[in-house]
Design a protein around this nucleic acid. Sequence first.
DNA 1: TTGTAAGCGTTATCAT
DNA 2: ATGATAACGCTTACAA
Lengths: 379, 379
Amino acid sequence: MSVVMLNRFSRTVSPISRVVHVSRRMGYGRARTGESRWLTRRSMSKRPTQADVARSAGVSATTVSLVLNGRTGTRISDDAARRVRVAAETLGYSPDPTALSLRTGRTKTLGFVSDGVTVTRYASAMIRGVLDAAESKGQSVMMAEVDDHPDRWERAIVDLSDRKVDAIVVGLMVARTIELPPMPSGVSTVIVNGLSGGLPSVLPDEFAAGRAAAEYVIRAGHRRIAFIGRSERMLDPVVSATVGRRYQGIDRAMADAGLHFTTTCDLPEWEPGPAREAAMSVLGSPSRPTAILAANDRVAFGVYQAAADLGLTIAQDVSVMSFDDEALADYLRPGLTTMRLPYRDMGMAGVREALNPGNDLLELPMPLVERGSVAPPRG
Amino acid sequence: MSVVMLNRFSRTVSPISRVVHVSRRMGYGRARTGESRWLTRRSMSKRPTQADVARSAGVSATTVSLVLNGRTGTRISDDAARRVRVAAETLGYSPDPTALSLRTGRTKTLGFVSDGVTVTRYASAMIRGVLDAAESKGQSVMMAEVDDHPDRWERAIVDLSDRKVDAIVVGLMVARTIELPPMPSGVSTVIVNGLSGGLPSVLPDEFAAGRAAAEYVIRAGHRRIAFIGRSERMLDPVVSATVGRRYQGIDRAMADAGLHFTTTCDLPEWEPGPAREAAMSVLGSPSRPTAILAANDRVAFGVYQAAADLGLTIAQDVSVMSFDDEALADYLRPGLTTMRLPYRDMGMAGVREALNPGNDLLELPMPLVERGSVAPPRG
DNA sequence: TTGTAAGCGTTATCAT
DNA sequence: ATGATAACGCTTACAA
């Protein structure tokens, strides 16, 4: 295997020449020198083809193909098979993917198109999930990103299908309902973190998460709970495909416990600024709640800021429970307890579903990440 | 920022058939109905080939190829050319990329391999840069991610070269010096945000940034300045390729102004926790500085926390200047003034250099992002 | 000015 | 049990 790889490289690696080279770039320190980890072979020869293997094994190309693809229905003699394998090994043969694609129409490549997962810190884990799952299935990933203009979606998808990707995964940075161009027939497509027409979807299980979050706070002993960030605007499926479910889950838990929120604030945006203002008034009131459910981590951050302004200590004076688990949640002190959006899992599931269709809708659990912002109420 | 995100979501909606489908998925709201924006491509038939165009235009495949590739050295008659173009247009012909690759050995695809840019919030913009630059050059991007194990690098790179990518961009999430396997010959390769042997590099201009940062604080009128996070550990090129330059730039500015830091703290990690402790002692001392230079934004966050603990107000009581500009910088109040790591630019430059080699080292400017954490000293 | 034919490296269909 | 041979869809000598 490593033979296969090595004889394709012609650049000889001399540690010395590297250091010289680097040191020319004024100002950058030189790395410690040492053994090169990489072996190189000097061969300038062309990449060996199936025909080369055939020649070397004294058989026809057909036989090589048959043997190497394991299509051996007692057809090939053990002897021939062995010779082929030896020849392939010593020549360092590996089949040419482009020729394979032309012939078979498949590419062992899947397309991932997103509307900006990349640029969204908390969503970029989705890509990692896609990449990991793809690798485990022996697939490469061709990536495209669109800025949500219809024709960019279309261009990206057409390009992908032109390149004959085996499947397409569409990833959204924020769960919402979108309209996509018609997918190329014959290419299995899945939408991750979103809903679009009849496409199979992978979504976070927000109902369960909402319920679990509220239950967690209730079980901690809280009865006076406020909800900051119940925004009507978010209920539009085009704005969010899942927030409604989140609310429903929360409501269910509250109802089951026979509770009502002491206060519910709508916020124009789920951002620290507005959240802080809202929290100031909620926490400043004489009938201050002992716990706050924040619509997401940025809202929770606003609550932290308000608490700080008011001289209140999170957890001790007021508990905060949140949703999303973005990086921020881990920076805060105390750490923010929150329901994690399983971006990586969703990416992985998307790939699995695209490669192996079956489910119309997959709802992935949102783990509760306990960090310390929720404690039993005082007194 | 979030406004930007939200504006992008203003979209219209779903055709009826889709709504029916969606409504079957219990619990998810239905989108408003409206006009479908997509035209369906009528042909259920096979994709037209060059031969089809030739037949339809009454010429040979050669002529089609020549015309469509603009290889018209007075060779083709205007008439034939016109007929070909019309035929291609009406048939909706576009060349098959896989056939093209097999024939030409090129793929209009470039490989992007990284050690985890994806999963690193602040670095993921690099991908966006790569994607955008690639698109503008008519290239698709095949992406791979490795967890920094030598053989994963090798596997990824071999896979990419097997697939005959036209160029390779290696992207590092944190600027450092690494050893890469020998690159496949004939494939132009660039390393972004890192240094590796003789490979062309794209790096942030940390010297200029360090200098600009310190000068900015000095120009604001500060004389008593502390530096938190001057970590020796980071000077190892394997740990960081650029931090040394950052320090040098800072030192230059301080020297030029005839100043010395009142305090300099080494930190084991550039994280809020340790930074907060260090800042507590720096800010708690009677000879408290009026400004703090933080090694990066997370360190700065630690400084904010310490200031809050001590009842000090950022900007008013102590100015903070930082590096990196991760999302956090924008969440803080007051916003953190910081030198932005130009991940997106680096990604774009990496692609340009890979496709169009020339420079051995490109140092990209780090813009100063003014947000309000630096003010003139009081009194 | 244009067409024929030979590949590119595979796999699949036949003969043998 | 194996080998010719014909695609796959394109580009490019080389002919005409």
